[in-house]
Amino acid sequence: MKTNDFNYELPEELIAQHPLEERTSSRLLVLDKTYKKINHGKFVDILEHMNPGDGIVLNDSRVLPARLFGNRPGKEESLEVLLLKRTEKNIWECLVRPGKKMKAGGKIEFGEGILKGTVLKIGEDGTRFIDFTFKGIFEEILDKLGEMPLPPYITEKLEDGERYQTVYSKNPGSAAAPTAGLHFDNELLGRIQEKGIEIVYLTLHVGLGTFRPVKVEDINDHIMHSEYYQLSEEAAETINRIKQTGGKIISVGTTSTRTLETIADENGIVSGGSGWTDIFIYPGYRFKLVDGLITNFHLPESTLMMLVSAFASKDLIMEAYQEAINNRYRFFSFGDSMFIK
């Protein structure tokens, strides 16, 4: 299967540049993969597509203010460092721009020396592994010096950084938001519980590799990035009980989906635990656990397009995307939503 099989033409004006004033007011395209039907509504209508006894699984990872600007000691030229993932206590895999300025052994300072870094090595894909030194708590320093790492297709300034966080975000560590969850507010979550639908949380720290277009011609040659996940024993017991009693597991976002499908055994049973996943889901994959998927509209030729195409079928996803374009849906991180059932 070729990467360009997952390409489509998107008018630039449909790329959402800012979040809507009310999270739940985004539009919702409902794709019934069994009957191959498409319906349109508002995201708040999601309740109509879930039943008592079902479970909805949310990723509670919180986006770090992971974009830092610094300079080499004695140099005025600014360097941009984007934290991707923590590999050891104070060592992070990072993107550096311009990268050619930072070779192995290179030094960089941020905030007049409040935070310092040394490049330990350069990864095969050009990322830098930087060992940071500082006094105090790293997360507090990031809050002071860092900026929210919005995707490059968002060119307008975000006035409120919390709008790039889900209302239930708790565990810092992501380089990008699990955007399918941006449509929920606390009121809707309360109504979901009142209907008898269980809410389950897991953590997967999102790396930017999730959103990068696949650069190989044949998708079988693509090397997937790895991301850290965690699922509690209590959450695992809840998921198993829902399935055993006939409920459906509705995954919010591709990040929750990748975590669930990583942890589930061949019988769809999950156990609590943590680790790193590099699962690559594309057409031909047999889903072991997830019954429904709430997701945004994704970049062409991305692994996320391949995942949703595996869940529904490529032809059906392409039809749904063209329907969304024809109906002027808003795309990508701050865009509208799709529910595949």
Rank of each mutant, 00 (worst) to 15 (best):
F297T: 10
S302V: 09
T303F: 03
F297W: 07
I317V: 15
Y285K: 08
Y285G: 10
G284I: 12
P300Q: 06
L316I: 05
Y282N: 06
V308L: 08
I281H: 00
D291I: 04
N296W: 15
K288G: 04
G275N: 10
L289D: 12
I281R: 01
R286E: 12
G284K: 13
A312Q: 01
I279Y: 03
I317N: 02
K314N: 11
M318V: 07
W276Q: 11
L289V: 15
F287D: 01
L299S: 14
M306R: 05
S309I: 06
W276F: 14
V308I: 15
S313T: 14
T295V: 14
Y285I: 11
K288L: 13
A312K: 01
S302T: 09
L289C: 10
P283L: 04
W276A: 00
M305C: 07
A310F: 04
L293W: 10
S313I: 02
S313D: 10
S309P: 03
Y282G: 02
M318C: 08
K314H: 07
R286K: 14
P300F: 02
A310M: 04
I317C: 06
D291R: 00
F311K: 02
F311P: 09
R286I: 01
M305V: 10
P283Y: 11
P300I: 08
Y282S: 09
L307H: 07
K288Y: 11
T295M: 10
E301M: 15
G284M: 13
T303Q: 04
L307N: 07
W276N: 11
Y285M: 09
S309Y: 04
Y285W: 13
D291S: 09
I317A: 05
D315M: 04
G292K: 05
P300S: 06
G284R: 13
V308N: 12
A312Y: 01
H298W: 13
S309E: 02
D278N: 15
M305S: 09
T303K: 00
I294G: 07
K288A: 08
G275P: 10
Y282W: 10
M305W: 06
D291M: 02
W276G: 00
S309M: 05
T277E: 05
P283R: 07
P300C: 01
A310Q: 02
N296P: 15
Y282K: 14
F297R: 12
S313V: 00
S313Y: 02
F297M: 08
F297C: 11
L289E: 14
F280H: 03
S309L: 07
A312M: 03
P283A: 09
P283S: 05
G292Y: 04
G292H: 00
Y282I: 01
I317F: 01
I317E: 03
S302Y: 02
T277H: 09
F280C: 04
T277K: 01
F280S: 00
Y285N: 11
H298G: 12
E301K: 15
L299E: 14
G284Y: 13
D278R: 13
V308C: 09
D291V: 09
I279P: 01
N296L: 15
T295D: 08
P283Q: 07
L289H: 12
M305T: 07
G275R: 01
I294D: 02
I317S: 07
G292T: 02
P300Y: 06
V308D: 09
F280P: 00
L293M: 12
T277L: 05
G284Q: 11
K314G: 06
Y282M: 03
L293D: 13
M305F: 08
P283E: 07
V308F: 11
D315W: 10
